[in-house]
Amino acid sequence: MTEAGEFAVATAGLTKRFKAQVAVNAIDLLVPRGSVYGFLGPNGSGKTTTIRMLLGLIRPTSGHHRLLGRAMPHNAGQVLPLVGSLVEGPAFHPYLTARANLQRLDSVDRHADPRTTKVRVDGALDRVGLLAAADKKYRAYSLGMRQRLAIAGTLLAPRELLVLDEPTNGLDPQGTREVRHLIGSLADDGATVLVSSHLLSEVEQVCTHIGVMHVGRLLTQGPIAEVRAVSEPRARVETDRPADAATVLRALGLTDVVVESGVVVGTLGALVPDKVVAALVHQGVPVTGFAVAQPSLEDLFVSLTGEGFNVSG
C-alpha cells in the first residue's frame, strides 16, 4: 500500500463492463501529486469511461479508487469540491449567457461564497480569454469558445486536482497552445493535472507523466522519461543507394531495418552512431544525411500495441 496522500489519483483494478463490452479493464492508474499526467489513448480506448468513474458519475463494475487520498465515491462530498473537471466536452444551458452559466454552476456549489461569485466568475472568464464575450448566449459560442468556457468552469474555485478530458478538442492551433500554457500555469500553482488526449503530440510537451490506454487496458505509465527509455533510439540514413545502406546496417547489427525511398531507418541498440557513418563511408555508400532520433510517443505506442493510434473497436 502507498501512503494516503502520495497520489492525487490511485485506482486499483478499476473495471467497467457495459453489457458484453469491457470498456475499462482492471486498470491501476497512479497519478502522483503535483504531476501533469497525460492520459493518452485513441478514441474509444476507455479514457472517458475511466474519468467518469473517477468522478463518481458511473459506478465501476469492480475495483476501487481514491482521489486526493480519500476513497471514492464514499467521500465525494469532501473530495469533489477540490477537483475541477471537464468531462466529454463542454455542456451548458444554450439560452443563458456564458456568465449566467458559470453563475449557475457556482450557485449549486455549497462551498462557494456568494459574495465573491462575481469576482471569481469574471476571473475565470478572463483567464480563458472570454471576458469580452461573457454576455453572449452560449448558443452563439463557437466550439472553441465552448471548450474554453468549460475550462473556465473548472477555475471557479481553487483546486488541488484538475481532470481535463480532451481539453483541446475543437481548438485551433493558437487555442491549443493557450490551453497547454494554461495547464502549465495551473501546475505551477501546485495543482495536479490529469489531462486526457487522443492527440499524443498535443500534450506530450507539458506532461511530466504519461499513461497509455489501449482497448480498455493501461499499457504503461510513469514519468515521461522512464516510459520513453523503454524505446531505443533509431538511426536514420539518407542515401541514393538505400538497398546497399540497409545491407551495411544489418551487418553492423542494427535491428528493425526499414527501407523507404531514399531513407533507411534502423534501431541502434548499443551501437555508437559514429561507427555507422564510418562503416557506410568505408563501404562506399554515399550518405547525404544522417540523424539519430528518439522515437515519438506515437512510435512508442505502435511498438506497445503493434498497431497504429487509431480508433479502438
Binding site: L55, G56, G77, L80, V87, A91, H93, L105, V108
Partner: peptide, 14 residues
C-alpha cells in the same frame, strides 16, 4: 440531454 447533469454532479451536487 444537454449534458449539464454530469457537471452538476461533479460540482458536486448530491
Amino acid at each position: 440531454n444537454i449534458g449539464t447533469l454530469r457537471y452538476l454532479l461533479a460540482v458536486p451536487v448530491h
